[in-house]
Design a protein around this nucleic acid. Sequence first.
DNA 1: TAGATTGTTAATCGATTAACAATC
DNA 2: TAGATTGTTAATCGATTAACAATC
Lengths: 211, 211
Amino acid sequence: MARIKIPAAPAIRRMPTYLHLIRQAEADGLEYISGTVIATELNLEPIQVRKDLALTGITGKPKRGYLVPALITAIEHFLGWDKPKNAILIGAGNLGTALTGYQEFQYHGLNFVAAFDTNPERIGKQIHGVPVLSLNSLEENVKNLGATIAVLTVPSSEAQETADMIVKTGIRAIWNFTNTKINVPENVAVQREDLTSGYAMLCAAMQLYMA
Amino acid sequence: MARIKIPAAPAIRRMPTYLHLIRQAEADGLEYISGTVIATELNLEPIQVRKDLALTGITGKPKRGYLVPALITAIEHFLGWDKPKNAILIGAGNLGTALTGYQEFQYHGLNFVAAFDTNPERIGKQIHGVPVLSLNSLEENVKNLGATIAVLTVPSSEAQETADMIVKTGIRAIWNFTNTKINVPENVAVQREDLTSGYAMLCAAMQLYMA
DNA sequence: TAGATTGTTAATCGATTAACAATC
DNA sequence: TAGATTGTTAATCGATTAACAATC
């Protein structure tokens, strides 16, 4: 079986941005928000916003727009962000440490319950309140931690080897921050986050703008 | 004038991955690498790899593939990665600190020459060898630093305000790591990096895989 | 040579955008 | 009511994939 392709991926990627804006509207005490307003705010086409939001199953009211609280609930449910998720961090370096401290994740139900590392100087300490354990103890700890996501922030050279360890624990979702493509069984979801690809886009834009 | 849309954006995003793999091939002493091999290695279609690489202007040899050193040069030139770029970091928090320490960037010609922050405890110190200066001194320092890119890692609440300051210095490329959409003049390139959008994709994949 | 791989031209697929009747 | 906004159906656009002659 081929790896599943996520349908409407671009729309899904836009959801958090919508959510962020709509939450602001909520904080501002707005009862309704229209696709037109969202589009203007985010420099998008109104029809695109309507199409995207329709994916969540929400329906709006002509002339008013969407009910703010219902829209928030709809997006969160669509993304599964209404159910808290426990994650473990594999590799407690700079980037990993930054991720555990990133408030926005907790805000969306993502909780780091432990970090694992091979560096003895890191083991036993805490990063943003998250205990750093030995990578050797990964398997024996995962069960109690109730983690369903592994965030991979080890050096590229160890990415595949570490991914294999993660898979062995039974975790089936890996958020891969290394710049290496990892091979995993078909039933394991991998989301690769490549910071250099964003940098490539910025450089391409610079070449266009400054030409 | 509307903001320029980058053509072939998906292909550009894949370039760093190709580069990474081809560099490995170079390290392994390979003289040629074929699109077929690259595709197999990265789980892509061979035709997609060929189409993407053609964008860089390279041509391959039937039966052999592409000359490895020429391919590296072609991709780097295509992305403008053959010209070193100086960047300043705005916001020396967790994420910003991690970025200045991210080896991969230096490897692609991105140099952090200074960081700016408002926190007196941070000012005067160094992060990964990069001096942290007062945000108040941004304007007077930018000229000497020769920076063409600003990496924005301040709290969301200060994103727009800080972006305005950056624009005022004459910098025309902003890499925005906040989850806020910033408004800038048409001649300023902005690349938004949204970690929560990757998380949204992972969650969507989890819902599909685990359904 | 035989056959793998390239690059070109065409077909398909999916995402974005447009048009517009329905509706509050 | 008048008019802004929704959701549906159709058109367009761009990216991916397919087919295949050229070539080393």
